[in-house]
Amino acid sequence: MNIFERMMSVDRRWVFLFLALVCVLTYKVDFEVEVRVTDEVRKIYNFIDTLKPGDYIFVAIDYDPNSLAELHPMTYAIVEQAWRKNMKIVFTALSQNGPGMADQAIRDISDSLKLVKTYNGITYPTRDIVNGIDYIFLGYKPYPALVIAGMGQNFRLPFPTDYYGTPLDSLPMMRGIQNYNQMKCVIDISGTSGIDMWIAYGQTRYGFPLALGLTGVMAADYYPYLNSGQVFGMMGGILGAAQYEKLADNAGSALDMMRIQLYAHMVIILFIIIGNIGFLVSRRAKNQ
């Protein structure tokens, strides 16, 4: 076996080892990677940024811990931006392990708001986030299509009580709030096909502005909806989350992970190039 044939058939354990080494090294060595912001992410940021204090937004946390690395940073950046601007948020979690993710995010972001922070040159004072006043967490119900359609008529249909068992009517934030009509937008952060249901049963039927946060591998699938105007903005994977963090001036784990992702991609590209050089030279030699 000559060198080119070896290049074609590197044992996959070498690929694993090399990738693991690069991931660990880039995790340990701290340096910044430049992130360029795309229009589809900027539109979401601008939309939230132009809303007024007291406006309601709807955030659907439809992901499980397996997509946490990509999607949690989006939730953290958007929710903190909204809460810093005194907006009110209605949360749901329509994937099976979503309630745990939402519960964790709400706790962490509430803690972050107890600190004075400066974002984009504006200093925000501390504030306590109170359930029923600043947010309401509706929780999980099976059959997302039905739940999404039901909420379009009245949130109380699929969720008579919130996640913690409190009747919706007893929560101050829900006075006069019936359905999506009172929401300025819906942001679905999802690692599941639930996005299709938000588009088909939610946005198409009730006409609310919808933005998406999704995993990197899902992003390409949703460009048709962005192009048709059914979705007004989209964040794809760690890159999308990092762009949002950059816009919000709230550096979190996505910007931190960009250097790992960048070098991991470069390793993958390197192996693809090695494999192709080996393949092309070997094929030429065989043809001759």
Binding site: R12, V15, F16, P65, N66, N97, Q104, I268, I274
Partner: peptide, 25 residues
């Protein structure tokens, strides 16, 4: 739950790297 599911999914990166090395010819 979170570490278990995150670990399982993160292994995907290694399989993608290996698969793309062999498939992208």
């Amino acid at each position: 739950m979170i570490p278990i599911q995150s670990t399982m999914f993160s292994l995907l990166a290694f399989f993608i790297a290996s698969a793309s090395y062999r498939a992208f010819r």
